[in-house]
Every structure is written in C-alpha cells, then in structure tokens.
Amino acid sequence: MATSAVPTERAISVTVNGTTYDREVEARKLLIHFLRDDLDLTGSHIGCDTGNCGACSVIVDGTLVKSCMLLAVQADGARVETVEGLAAGDELSKLQQAFTAHHALQCGYCTPGMLMSATALLRANPSPSDDEIRKALQGNICRCTGYWNIFEAVKAAAE
C-alpha cells in the first residue's frame, strides 16, 4: 500500500461532451471506468483492456487516445469527447450516417472507437488518402473483421 503522504484520491473536474463533472476519484481508476461507471456514459466500450483493440478510444483535448491507458486523474481539467457527443440531438453526424449507409457495423462493439478515430482523422485531414484512412484506423480492431465497409464509410464521409 502507499506509504507516502501522497494521496490515493483526487478531486477532478472533467468536461465530457460539453458538460463539466466534478468528482472525487481514486487515482487507480482508468478513464474508461470513470466514463462508464461514474458518468454512466457507456458508449465507449472496453474490448481488450490491454491497449490493443481501440474500442475505448475517446478524444481528450483534441487528441485521440485509448481511455483504458489513461487514468481518470490524468484527464483532470481536460475536455473529453465520446461517441455520445457526435450527434447533434437526433441528427447523426455525417460520419455516423455514412456508417449506417455503408453497413459499417455488424455487432457494433468496435463502432464507438472506430467513429472516434475516424472523427479525429477527418478533423485533422478532411480529405485523407486511402492509406491515410487505413493508417488512422490501425489502432482499432473489428472482431467481425468488417474493415472494408468501415473504410468505405470513412471514405464516403470524407468526400
């Protein structure tokens, strides 16, 4: 156990999809657990919990990260975007609509992470090449192996 005077809990303030949450969290809590368990934002998924699958991908201060490899306390003061924030009310984002139109989801487990990775890509690079799309999705695994339609959806949203 920790023996130093350094605390194992910390008060944090995190803005998720525009709403600011002030919470006391244990330092050991991963950001994905904070989002899912504390804030009840269950759109971001836990697939592998080893940093490989990307189902937990969210955008923190404009940067795409895997939220299973970040502690919630590390997101103190940050602006976090999750899949719940992509749609404007009932209006799905252009990318989400492209996922529907191109059957880019089968079981849907990887979809939140795929959407966040593709959202980060299209913000930084609105007209990506085919290779840039593939490289941008490299950190996201689809257990249905439905990569082709996901690629097509991102490509359609980019055009």
Partner: peptide
C-alpha cells in the same frame, strides 16, 4: 481492470 491502489502526484 482495477489497478492496485496507488498514490498519485502531479508535481
């Protein structure tokens, strides 16, 4: 995965 309890400092 729940990590073992840990203290956290941000100097």
């Amino acid at each position: 995965m729940l990590l073992r309890e840990v203290a956290y400092a941000k100097p």
